[in-house]
Design a binder for these strands. Structure first.
Length: 620
RNA sequence: GCCCCCGUAGCCCAAUGGCAGAGGCAGGCGACUUAAAAUCGCUUCAGUCAGGGUUCGAGUCCCUGCGGGGGCACCA
């Protein structure tokens, strides 16, 4: 899920000489192979480069740019992120030189290029990039095809069979169709690259650029920022004071932490600047160095910054001297299991990982990942919507009052896998109330004393109890709470039968089973479990009682059912010892009358034996 | 547009590639009761969304499609 928020692109940096500028402009591209098809260049309107290139340009160019820049800056984040909006931009009246073709490329400014990614400038290859093509068609810029996607590259991509009619390149001209050719193909119109595949052409182009000193292989990284760019009044202040001379001075340690001002009377509506800046009394402070007028940094950090290291702070919560104790971190961290909703899975987790890596690089922690395992629990909906009293639906507090916290917890745990979203209308706590009453009653019905000898009790119930003791821990540890509770219900049903049947309420196995139910139930319904524990004659608390070890002797099955399949269909079932050998099981299966009958005259081609579970006979 | 997850009984959901049903809800029948509730017992119900493939054997693995849910979205 973090794929959309973090990324690494392999490609190249290419230097473009710009007329009237000493230094070349460097762009990042993942497709250096298409350099021959670059027909213009774009710089982000809000970049320093755009400001520099526009400086000194005549009014008929500078004024439209100024207007465009103002419009872009007024555009909200939401509008700007809409991918299907029409491309806009203005020319800067400057020109770059394509390093391989020598062509003169007009430089435009457009907001589809982002100032904070790569170098804030791109080479535009409209024939092979949809965004560039959209822009080129909107402003009538040239389109030059340099990859022929209808020429097979490897015989696999694209799939073209003998006799297939190959479309003419002209008929799919991107300038006409509006569809960029982004697929694989062979290079054309590209000088020494002609005929090469994409992969080879990229490698060759990088080599050529490096030889000519006009480019190099490069990687570009991105990490979507939500920590600083999302400004809120109540965020964490950045403890920096800006001097009148532009100096950035840390707030003196004895003045930390920086506290937020009272928000009373302040206008905190979004204005495109930091809301905290409205608190002028708070912002204006003397320079800690020389006492001259200075300003606090008005940007705040999102709460995700704080929560990105709380798992370290929690290890030494009373330490006034430092954020966390590296020795404690070495001892306890990383965290074994992280449980959270999906919204935390993408943002909180992303930044916690990032900050952990920073702390690792600083040598403050000795692990690179903060959390070893992740579980994203699902939501509880009611009638398809979030539980909300105001919407007229059921509210959690009403449900708690009506059914009790034990039944509510049990309902949630039993409803399905924890990562699934559940609908309260589908599960309802009524059945769990019944179950809790049922087991509580059983605890009351047990007549034996705690000292009763289990071993002499009902053997069938004992086996089931110990099977449960053996299976439940791993069900709990793999978060299969719904299955564990189902198994618990099974054990309760068997116990009920034992009490009402041969064994009776005084049987040792009955007490053993009911105690086991109380132990397991303490995970989900602690109040009921403690009540059961007391009725069984113990002092609290069941929560302090350890899990019991199953008796291996009671886990051994007397016999198991082996299935005999003929051509995949079950034809016979055999009761066999769990320790039966493959040879013996095969002999039993092939000598079975039922199997012989279903085989008829067909000859056996192959027999697969998986003792003691299954024998599969395939015929010719 | 791209990425991820999920489709099993009327409903929620189980099933290391090996007998599709463990558990619950709802429904039906019965016991107890003057009656009802509560309780206890018994019980009906699907061949696993569709179509291909791999395999001795597929709910489970692979491909395509349909349906549902979620995430992201101009990253050069």
């Amino acid at each position: 899920m973090q794929k959309n928020w973090i990324g690494r692109s392999n490609g190249a940096e290419v230097d473009f000489r710009v007329e009237g500028r000493d230094e070349p402009v460097t762009v990042f591209t993942t497709r250096p192979d298409t350099l021959h098809g670059a027909t213009y260049m774009v710089v982000a309107p809000d970049s320093d480069l755009a400001a520099e290139l526009i400086a000194g340009q005549p009014a008929e160019i500078a004024e439209p740019f100024a207007a465009y820049l103002a419009r872009v800056q007024a555009t909200t984040e939401v509008e700007r992120q809409s991918a299907d909006r029409v491309k806009t931009g203005v020319p800067l009246g400057r020109f770059a030189i394509n390093p391989v073709t020598g062509d003169r490329l007009p430089i435009w400014s457009a907001d589809y290029v982002l100032s904070d990614y790569g170098t804030g400038a791109i080479m535009a290859v409209p024939a092979h990039d949809q965004r560039d093509l959209d822009f080129a068609r909107a402003f009538d810029l040239p389109v030059k095809t340099v990859v022929d996607v209808f020429q097979p590259v490897t015989g696999v991509i694209p799939v073209i069979r003998p006799g297939d009619e190959l479309p003419e390149l002209e008929s799919v001209d991107p300038a006409v169709t509006g569809v960029a050719l982004t697929g694989e193909g062979r290079m054309v119109n590209s000088g020494s690259l002609n005929g090469m595949s994409k992969t080879n052409a990229i490698a060759r182009m990088i080599k050529d650029l490096e030889a000519a000193g006009t480019g190099r292989a490069a990687k570009s990284y991105r990490l979507r920022d939500w920590l600083i760019s999302r400004q809120r009044f109540w965020g964490t202040p950045i403890p920096i004071i800006h001097g009148a001379d532009g100096a950035e001075i840390p707030v003196p340690e004895d003045q930390l932490p920086v506290r937020l001002p009272d928000s009373g009377g302040l206008d905190l509506k979004p204005k495109g600047t930091s809301p905290l800046g409205a608190a002028t009394d708070w912002v204006n402070v003397p320079n800690p160095v020389d006492g001259t007028p200075a300003k606090r940094d008005a940007d705040t950090m999102d709460t995700f910054v704080d929560s990105s290291w709380y798992f370290l702070r929690f290890l030494s919560p009373n330490d006034d001297g430092k954020a966390f104790d590296p020795a404690e971190a070495d001892k306890w961290a990383p965290v074994d299991q992280y449980v959270g909703g999906v919204e935390h899975a993408i943002l909180h987790l992303l930044y916690a990982r990032f900050i952990t890596k920073v702390l690792f690089d600083l040598g403050l922690v000795h692990f690179t990942e903060p959390f070893n395992a992740l579980l994203n629990q699902g939501m509880v909906l009611s009638g398809g919507a979030k539980m909300s009293k105001s919407k007229g639906g059921v509210s959690l507090s009403d449900e708690l009052n009506r059914f009790g916290v034990d039944a509510i917890r049990l309902t949630m745990a039993f409803a399905g896998p924890p990562e699934d979203t559940i609908d309260w209308e589908d599960v309802r706590p009524g059945g769990q109330v019944k179950f809790l009453n049922r087991v509580l009653r059983m605890a009351t019905e047990v007549t034996s004393a705690p000292e009763v000898v289990w071993a002499s009790g009902d053997a069938g119930l004992r086996r089931q109890t110990h099977r449960f003791l053996a299976d439940a821990p791993q069900l709990a540890e793999t978060f299969k709470f719904n299955v564990m509770i189902a198994r618990l219900m099974e054990l309760a049903n068997a116990t009920r039968k034992a009490i009402d049947g041969q064994a009776g309420p005084a049987d040792g196995a009955v007490r053993e089973a009911v105690e086991t139910i109380a132990l397991a139930l303490s995970l989900f319904a602690p109040y009921t479990a403690e009540e059961m524990w007391e009725r069984l004659g113990y002092v609290p608390s069941v929560a302090l009682h350890g899990w019991r070890k199953p008796d291996p002797m009671l886990l051994v099955e007397d016999s198991v059912t082996a299935v005999v399949q003929v051509d995949g269909k079950v034809r016979d079932r055999l009761e066999v010892s769990p320790k039966i050998t493959a040879e013996e099981l095969e002999r039993l299966a092939t000598s079975s009358d039922v199997v012989k009958r279903s085989l008829g005259t067909r000859r056996i081609a192959r027999v697969v034996v998986r003792a003691p579970r299954v024998v599969s006979i395939a015929t010719e």
